[in-house]
Design a protein around this nucleic acid. Structure first.
Lengths: 349, 349
DNA sequence: ATGAAAGCGCTAACAA
DNA sequence: TTGTTAGCGCTTTCAT
């Protein structure tokens, strides 16, 4: 068992005394600095182990101004989060890259407007060296908050308000939603479909809005009844599909803005006796293989490499955080990257 | 825009100077202490706003020894986490209670053995005032780690190693898994079933082991072929059901250790042409209504109030953290609570 | 290679 | 009611 003479946690000083050296030396050993004699370093490490010493991060970050932690802030009702494999992928990529660079990822949820001030204080308080922010709605106060306290941050998805509208804009990683949607709809057109509907995500999210824009780019004069707003859930996709079918019984194709919604749509199509793709062709978005390959029929969909986008976000954050506003050749580091998408054709269209 | 003369973030001292008062006074205002003249407090608040001042938490916790954050540590491959509504419920309860008491919940994942040291350092470093820990396997090093650095902690589920085996044991909140399982199996017996199988969770988790014990309490001489180990996933439940059916074609009932697995089992039963409950009666565990009411037929299951268990964990943590080892009447605060379960009868058994 | 000393930004006695 | 002072535990010059 660990020895702990008095009641409180051991400090650097305790370790130093026990090892018969100075605090500086202990600090050096702990931080892996080379200039310490091996024998001394060993004595120190023994003392550390014997005392069960763990550095006090508060004291440490007070002087270093770093915490080695990075916040991942998710603004999303929890229930959606825990049901949509999309986040899982994203987080896997983020985690991987963060950990690789020695940072501890800490996840924060915002589920309620009341949460903003508390989370803002947390972010601004030096608990983390940077933040990765998600799912920003048009009215999300987070971008302004982090800008205001100049915390390095990278957004997942294009923040609402237009790219680069504030100063030089935010750093962000976003898929080419609009281009991907265009490709999906063009594919449907090339199949000879003429009554092509779309099921959108919540239009206060930029990804949903951008995908709708892509649809409209191709179908310039699509009537309003061909557009149904969903909410990125399976059930929302099903409901939207039902509404679409009611309004336009002659529908022969539908572009659905997420795979999860698409699987809901497929269910409704089946229930209503429409064959896919013979009667109605379906294209999804995301290419979450767990979903897209499991549907009946397998889903033709727009692929975005979500995991890689996560890694990219983390990488971008480190570039920003390491005070590297311009690379050595003078060009500013890219602050906003749009990753490509591509159509994966399976059986549904 | 916020004024910020020089490059660095404003400190208490900057605010004090600007408001023409001392640091102490600013500190008082910020921490809402009453003994400050309203006029002065206002001047301070104005200075805070003008400077965009956010207290440096590192400095603050260095002296207060508190961080106002609580870690929720989930030891689970992410993919399971993000697919099982069980965690969603638990987290909702935890979050609610934590926030109510002014603590910021921060979520940490452990997905890889490599993560333990890093997370351990984080937990021990004073980033958080306490930890809520989940899904402990028999070989999980976390209990020992937190004990070693005496961080207030509460476990979700009975930690492996027996209750109270180390000193006075850990604080934990667990459902009456064994009792619930007994009730489920007795119900099956009372229905006249004679060949009752069970699909367990991974037996290195105490909840799974306890439920199996409950099954055996009632069916003392159940042969091994009636027991199939699953993994708490839908697919695992389906596979186990298939195995069970292969081994025991005369099976007339099955107790499944989770609703998610039960829904997988129901699917297999249907595919194999077994009617539920006529041919095979099924009882689940959890009563996640999103699942149990949605299956065909609706699932008879053992209810545990997961959300409330989450709240309870948070409450217990605060009791521990507030250095309240014994209540005022001298009795030690309860450190390990087992919450009741009860059978909810629907159509599957 | 090691130690002494200063100070990070804040809170908490204690004085006034 | 307000200000002064002394650290909290660590890293980091600067000496040695």
């Amino acid at each position: 068992m660990t020895e702990r003479p008095n009641g409180h946690r051991p400090t650097l000083e305790d370790v130093a005394r026990r090892a018969g050296v100075s605090k500086s030396t202990v600090s050096r050993v702990i931080n892996g600095e080379p200039k310490v004699r091996a024998a001394v370093a060993d004595r120190v490490r023994q003392a550390v182990a014997a005392l069960g010493y763990v550095p006090n991060q508060a004291a440490r970050s007070l002087v270093t101004r770093r915490s080695n932690a990075v916040a991942v802030v998710v603004t999303e009702p929890q229930n959606r989060l825990f049901v949509d494999p999309y986040f899982d992928c994203h987080l896997r990529g983020i985690r991987q890259e963060l950990v690789r660079r020695g940072a501890q990822p800490v996840l924060l949820f915002i589920e309620d407007p009341d949460d903003y001030p508390r989370v803002g204080t947390f972010l601004g308080g030096g608990h983390v060296d940077g933040a990765l922010l998600f799912s920003l709605r048009t009215d999300d106060p987070l971008p302004a908050m982090v800008a205001h306290m100049d915390l390095p941050a990278v957004f997942g998805g294009r923040p609402a308000g237009g790219s680069g509208h504030r100063g030089r804009g935010y750093a962000s990683v976003d898929a080419d939603n609009r281009g991907g949607a265009r490709e999906a709809v063009r594919h449907l057109v090339s199949l000879g479909r003429r009554r092509i509907g779309t099921i959108t995500g919540p239009l206060d999210q930029t990804s949903a809005a951008d995908r709708l824009d892509g649809y409209r780019d191709v179908l310039l004069d699509a009537p309003a009844e061909l557009v149904a707003e969903g909410d990125f859930t399976l059930r929302g996709g099903a409901d939207a599909m039902a509404a679409l079918l009611d309004r336009c019984p002659d529908l022969d194709a539908v572009f659905v803005a997420s795979d999860l919604m698409a699987s809901g749509a497929l269910r409704v199509l089946r229930e209503r006796g429409r064959r896919v793709p013979e009667d109605v062709a379906v294209v999804g978005f995301d290419d979450l293989v767990a979903i897209a390959e499991a549907t009946e029929p397998p889903l033709t969909t727009v692929r975005q490499d979500i995991e890689d986008m996560g890694r990219l976000m983390a990488r971008l954050l480190f570039e920003r955080a390491s005070d590297e506003p311009a690379s050595r050749d003078g060009r500013p580091a890219p602050s906003s990257v749009v990753t490509p998408t591509r159509l994966v054709v399976r059986a549904s269209a």
